[in-house]
């Protein structure tokens, strides 16, 4: 088994464990017959906390779009990754496996798809970065000046179709999730009270 395959297997196992852990914790917390955990005050706070963490991830793509000339921000990227996993985990703890109303069900489904596509994107990003660094070493070895190296790598990056295709999936799914999450919150406040 190659290092990449081992890492992929480890990531999948961790994802399954995290989901199972969150669902088990929510089931245990919902033992009271009066109401599920998600409908308690603590459950609501977890939902808000999860949403806040999840929205924090938008800082990274926002900076990439509006400050394209800036050097790649590794710290913001890490915030994007950690927030993109921790936020949905908190939301899963809030929601549990209680599936009834269509709006929150759809929001939960799109959230899951965004997280999964994000994990795939992280793998694609790591592979693309490795490829770029190899190209950089090659071009520097050939004696090219730094600005020329950067320009060639930029041109190479624009041709990376796999990553562009992934962007077309991950970005719109995120927007759909945010729209559905806001609908769910609006509906809960409308029918449940502020």
């Amino acid at each position: 088994m190659s290092a990449v395959e081992r890492r992929a297997l480890l990531v999948m196992a961790l994802v399954v464990l995290a989901i199972a852990g969150a669902l088990t914790a929510e089931w245990w917390l919902s033992r009271s017959p009066d109401r599920p955990f998600g409908h308690t005050q603590t459950g609501h706070v977890l939902g808000w906390g999860g949403l806040g963490l999840t929205l924090l991830v938008l800082a990274y793509p926002f900076r990439k779009r509006h400050q394209p000339g800036q050097r790649w921000s590794k710290s913001l990227f890490h915030v994007h990754i950690v927030g993109g996993l921790a936020g949905p985990l908190l939301i899963l703890l809030h929601a549990g496996a209680h599936l009834h109303a269509l709006i929150p069900d759809l929001a939960l489904l799109t959230m899951g798809l965004v997280v999964l596509s994000g994990i795939v994107g992280q793998a694609l990003h790591a592979l693309a970065l490795r490829s770029m660094n190899e190209q950089r070493r090659l071009l520097i070895h050939q004696g090219l000046p730094e600005p020329e190296v950067e320009a060639r790598l930029q041109a190479l990056a624009k041709q990376e179709e796999t990553f562009r295709l992934w962007q077309v999936i991950h970005g719109p799914l995120t927007v759909t999730f945010v729209a559905l999450a806001l609908l769910h919150i609006g509906g809960a406040l409308y029918y449940g009270g502020v």
């Binding site: 990439k64 779009r65 394209p68 790649w72 770029m132 790598l153 930029q154 990056a157 624009k158 990376e160 990553f163 562009r164 962007q167 077309v168 970005g171 719109p172 927007v175 759909t176 729209a179 559905l180 609908l183």
Partner: peptide, 21 residues
């Protein structure tokens, strides 16, 4: 290095989200 998304992405995204909502 920022990869620009396809130019049709955001109008399509806006229309699809509007239809959904």
């Amino acid at each position: 290095m920022a990869l620009p998304p396809p130019s049709s992405l955001y109008p399509t995204l806006f229309a699809a989200t509007l239809v959904l909502v």
